[in-house]
Design a protein around this nucleic acid. Structure first.
Length: 207
DNA sequence: TAGGCCATCTGGTCCT
DNA sequence: AGGACCAGATGGCCTA
């Protein structure tokens, strides 16, 4: 039984986009396992842009085994070595050809890469939440994308103002107009410039 | 060119 | 033990 690791760099930027590792014994059916894994990758890549193309390069320059080893030990796979001018097949085949098999002498490295990938996915989900939040805070039509910190601060100020409107029981539009005329005094300590906030709200269609 | 913003990597800590 | 979460470090990109 030996450890193997597969590292995928789909966008060919030199960093690992997906890692897969496990143990392999004599009965290990490499092709089946790899195909099923690549199907997972394809499914995942649909959600995790920018993984749009398959192009794999080993990130371990000191890999102990190469595609030649893979060829010998998994004769059914039909892979060819880099630079052999393989025909352009569908992405799955291309990925298989470019996949590197590694004997993991550095299990920490592989685990670290897997952790990096998870962290990247986590950050992607946070960023998508920020995008969603940006859609719910008042923006000027001509305004460029808000930074994360500005999005948070504006959201805080916006929520505070909405609460005040609710508490006042008055019509939102006239409340905003009044704020524009007299200057909005925020009851909270929101960092966001409050006159800027009311100006933003004046763009909102309240009916 | 400095400063702001961001993505990524990394190691530490907490949680399941 | 492994994954989630977090914060610090770093480097790239953009803008004033």
């Amino acid at each position: 039984m030996e450890d193997i690791g597969l590292l995928f760099d789909f966008d060919q930027d030199g960093s690992t986009d997906f890692a897969f590792w496990g143990q392999m014994d004599q009965n290990f059916h490499f092709q089946t396992q790899l195909e099923s894994f690549l199907m997972d990758c394809q499914a995942a890549s649909g959600q995790l842009s920018p993984w749009s193309t398959f192009g794999c390069q080993s990130v371990f320059s000191d890999a102990q085994l190469t595609l030649t080893d893979l060829d010998v030990q998994s004769p059914g796979l039909g892979v060819c070595a880099e630079g052999e001018g393989c025909p352009a097949d569908e992405p799955l085949e291309a990925a298989k050809r470019r996949t590197r098999r590694l004997v993991v002498h550095q299990p920490y490295k592989v685990q670290r890469h897997a952790a990096n990938i998870r962290e990247r996915k986590r950050m992607l989900s946070i960023n998508s939440a920020f995008e969603e939040l940006r859609c719910h805070v008042p923006m000027f039509p001509y305004e460029k994308r808000l930074s994360k910190i500005d999005t948070l601060r504006l959201a805080i100020a916006y929520i505070a103002l909405l609460r005040e409107i609710l508490m006042s029981g008055s019509d939102p539009k006239s409340y905003i107009d009044e704020c524009m005329k007299n200057g909005y005094k925020n009851q909270s300590d929101a960092i966001w410039n409050t006159s800027d906030l009311t100006a933003r709200l004046s763009w909102i269609k309240w009916d």
